[in-house]
Design a protein around this nucleic acid. Structure first.
Lengths: 157, 157
DNA sequence: AAAATTTAGATTGCGCACAATTAAATTGTA
DNA sequence: TACAATTTAATTGTGCGCAATCTAAATTTT
């Protein structure tokens, strides 16, 4: 145990904790803004997806947000109760449930437009720095999700 | 709405979502490793703190992990039930509850040492890249938590 | 067509995460 | 000494997040 050895379990040096804590900080930052819209953060994410493409199935929503049906199903049901969307079985395939925004759900988009600007203002990171950070995190996420030793490697095949 | 305008609400471009998703990916990565130790990720964080400094109060634990008593109290109680730690009122100040590791709680540290190495192996980011990413996230977290217009600025004092 | 398999979604159970409230102990002050 | 203000935990209630399990519908195999 020399002085030059770095403790591998120091909280302050852990990337996972930095991500965990930054996620909470984002939540705290968003909360008052989303409260004004009557939304939680995951509900906001669902709307972001549906504003891009309405009528997605529960499964497609889950793939987009990387959440499973145990999370998405009650989440969407709460949003339906609040009148933001409507769930409807696909007549082509009765297994799939499609989610359609109501007028109220679509209307919220205008009120949400200011939020990214507030984030940019609060962090005052320049756009390049944000982009770089985001891409590093996406790369990290892919590697973590790739599993042990990248079963079907990207190189050869 | 020209082609060159970027939609400010695109999920794919959102830093908050990249952080949110990377946090989940870390959780998934850690889960099988922590299951082997009988721990959840937040419980692992509590141990990281106590391995560095035993006998902390609930409040100090919460400050370190940026969590409030509504999270810490039941979390620590579950860990006490599993025999990892013991809760004890401070005799100097009966309001504060101090948390002390048991022998079993201390012993887990050895078994946890391999986890950071596995993270490093899975991501194969070099140490500098990890450090840079971590510091960017810490800076981001501070700015998000600093509140509107940075009430008591960091510059002078 | 009947049986086996696959897929989509819902349900249950557990553990965070946090706001809001309450209770108890300590400190500050008249 | 009283008593108001502050501090520390605990409690309650709501909403994720995910594993495991279940049901029903569709697809594939035989």
């Amino acid at each position: 145990m020399s002085d030059t050895e770095i403790d591998p379990l120091r909280l302050d040096r852990m990337l996972c904790f930095a991500i965990y804590a930054a996620g909470h900080a984002f939540n705290r930052f968003y909360k008052p803004r989303l409260d004004a819209l009557g939304l939680t953060y995951p509900q906001y994410l669902v709307l972001l997806v549906l504003w891009e493409q309405d009528g997605l199935s529960i499964k497609m929503l889950g793939e987009r947000l990387i959440l499973d049906s145990g999370t998405i199903t009650p989440l969407v049901k709460r949003m339906e109760t609040r009148g933001l969307m409507r769930r409807e079985r696909d007549h082509e395939d009765e297994r799939v449930v499609r989610v359609y925004l109501t007028e109220e759900g679509r209307a919220l988009r205008q009120r949400a437009l200011s939020i990214p600007l507030e984030v940019a203002g609060a962090t005052d990171f320049d756009l390049d720095a944000i982009d770089q950070l985001r891409m590093a995190l996406e790369q990290l996420r892919e590697k973590l999700d790739a599993g042990p030793d990248d079963i079907a490697g990207p190189g050869e095949r």
